[in-house]
Computed example of a mutant assay.
Amino acid sequence: MLPVLMFPQFNPVLVHVGPLAVRWYALSYILGIVLGIMLLRRLVALAPRVATPELADDFLTWVTLGVLLGGRLGYVLFYQPGYYLRHPLSMLEVWHGGMSFHGGALGVVIAMVLFTWRYKLNFLAFADRVTVAVPIGLGLGRVANFINGELWGREAPASLPWAMIFPDGGPIPRHPSQLYESLTEGLLLFVVLFVASRRLAIRERPGFLAGMFLAGYACARSFCEFFREPDSFLGYLAGGLTMGQILCLPMLAAGLALMVYARRHPAYAGLPAPAADQPPPGS
Rank of each mutant, 00 (worst) to 15 (best):
L5W: 03
V113N: 05
Y119M: 05
E225N: 04
V195I: 14
A201Y: 08
P230M: 12
M38S: 09
L237E: 04
W152A: 01
G137D: 02
L252M: 13
A21D: 00
G18Y: 11
P206R: 08
S222R: 03
A163P: 06
L189A: 12
L271N: 06
S197D: 07
M1Q: 09
F123Y: 13
G71Y: 13
L85M: 14
C224H: 02
H87S: 12
R198F: 01
P173I: 13
G211V: 02
G141Y: 00
H102Q: 15
I30D: 04
G170A: 10
L234M: 11
M99W: 03
T184H: 06
Q178V: 00
A158G: 14
G107Y: 00
L200S: 11
L247Y: 05
R228T: 01
G97Q: 11
R142W: 01
I246Y: 06
V50A: 13
T64H: 04
L188E: 06
A133L: 02
M212G: 14
V4Q: 04
T131I: 05
L68M: 15
A163T: 09
E150G: 01
V63F: 11
F166Q: 06
I202Q: 08
G235Y: 10
R86S: 11
H102I: 04
C224F: 04
G32V: 10
A158H: 09
F233G: 02
M6I: 08
R42P: 07
F7C: 02
L2W: 03
F227S: 00
V17A: 14
L189P: 12
